[in-house]
């Protein structure tokens, strides 16, 4: 595996974490251009912070935290709230070939639930970890997941997924 290096190249950093950051941003915004903007912000903050990390987990946790914060800032911005609906911006659509049922089901969830769903099901984070990362109370995270599951069950009822 090799010794841990706190300082790594931009290329290596992106290899390790760009997918993770982009997916978190996309989970919330459901928009390719927005997810790219947020991803860029996260990595530029990384460069700007010049932070030293103890190990790779430390670096990952820091990046996750910044990704969540950047996404929050982005969706709360006046620009995001005042823009036209996505249906009017065809270029923003992301082409999903497989599992489109899942895509549309998740897309129909309220934006806050999408992040909890993503962190729980894809990043395999516990409720406590999601709570610590997002600074949302555990009871709230639990209720977001519970509500999301209810909604997903209704939407995906014919497919009978185990949630």
């Amino acid at each position: 595996m090799g010794e841990f290096q706190s300082d790594i190249s931009a290329k290596r950093l992106l290899e390790l974490y760009s997918d993770m950051i982009y997916r978190i941003a996309f989970a919330r915004t459901q928009n390719k251009a927005d997810a790219e903007d947020i991803t860029q912000n996260v990595f530029l903050k990384y460069i700007d912070s010049n932070k030293r990390f103890n190990d790779e987990e430390h670096r990952k946790a820091w990046l996750l935290r910044v990704a969540v914060n950047c996404t929050n800032d982005f969706v709360k911005s006046a620009h995001y709230r005042n823009r036209a609906p996505i249906e009017d911006v065809p270029d923003a659509e992301v082409h999903i070939e497989e599992n489109s049922e899942i895509y549309y089901a998740v897309q129909s969830l309220p934006e806050k639930y999408r992040l909890a769903v993503h962190l729980f099901y894809y990043e395999d984070m516990s409720v406590a970890e999601i709570s610590a990362l997002t600074k949302i109370k555990e009871t709230t995270v639990k209720s977001q997941l519970s509500r999301a599951r209810d909604m997903l069950r209704k939407i995906l009822k014919e497919a009978q997924y185990e949630l």
């Binding site: 992106l14 996309f26 790219e36 991803t39 990595f43 497989e98 599992n99 899942i102 998740v106 099901y121």
Partner: peptide
């Protein structure tokens, strides 16, 4: 749902060109 969601997420990734530009910027 988790397995299907994982499969779906693997399709979500930034473009190579975007990453190349970002690496240069960084």
């Amino acid at each position: 749902f988790k397995d299907e969601y994982d499969k779906f997420q693997r399709q979500i990734a930034p473009d190579k060109e975007f990453l190349e530009r970002l690496a240069e910027k960084m």
